[in-house]
Nucleic acid binder design. Structure first.
Lengths: 120, 120
DNA sequence: GTGGGTGGTTACCTCCGGGTGAGCGTGCAC
DNA sequence: GTGCACGCTCACCCGGAGGTAACCACCCAC
């Protein structure tokens, strides 16, 4: 998603931002990242409860994509009932760190109470 | 877009990230931000040429939204032919700064050549 | 046997962000 | 009067991300 066909970079990306945007471009991905950052080794149902409104299908596909992107690690234990644990990879942790300034910006904006109002 | 109805914050946001994600959640918004960061006071047609593939409609609506979000300033000169200049507000500049680490992460990832491959 | 909890998959369907193409209103060049 | 450049706006359409709901396999508690 959000792939921009643009010359200038071999992979069609302009400035690294859109590379990152592709990775975090799912509706719930940053929240998953956040949940996994707060505490590593989250289980599927735990994540689902932490993200009220997400459906199993979407959560599962998001996690698959993030695993394929190398930012989430999935460990499945061969038990009954089945147990699966998700955690951040090193790359995922660095992505989360890179998101912190953005989060700070958002928090500032929320604190300032502006939610679509023109800036002063 | 990407609005998550979630308790815990008065505005339905969890951690500031999704506040930011809403603001930059358009297909071309980060690129507009980038173009406006490289040089302030871009004209409409200039931006269109800088973002090959964007349509007038989408560029216009993106700019309107960013203006409403207070990160872009729009100055219209009453001339013929009409001239409109776009620039970043202070908030927009800070947003761009907050995006830098993310861009660095993306550049690193591009440099590492991984584009969806599992992490090693 | 019925229900619950585990972590999914599958088949549909909805919704809206974004793409397409046209038109507008002005003045200048031809 | 025809066309162009500018910076849009409007009406329409499409694709895909995401939502809905059912189902699967397993075991335990009742």
């Amino acid at each position: 998603m959000t792939t921009v066909n643009r010359p200038g970079a071999p992979d069609g990306h302009v400035c690294g931002i859109d590379t990152a945007m592709e990775v975090i471009g799912g509706k719930w991905k940053v929240l998953i990242l956040w949940a996994l950052h707060e505490r590593p080794h989250r289980r599927f149902g735990e994540l689902r409860r932490l993200l009220p409104g997400v459906t199993e299908k979407v959560l599962a596909s998001h996690l698959r994509e993030m695993e394929a992107d190398g930012i989430v690690r999935r460990v499945s234990y061969d038990e009954v009932p089945p147990r699966v644990e998700y955690s951040l990879t090193e790359d995922g942790r660095r992505l989360n760190d890179a998101l912190e300034p953005l989060a700070a910006w958002g928090r500032e904006r929320s604190a300032a109470g502006r939610r679509g109002l023109p800036a002063g």
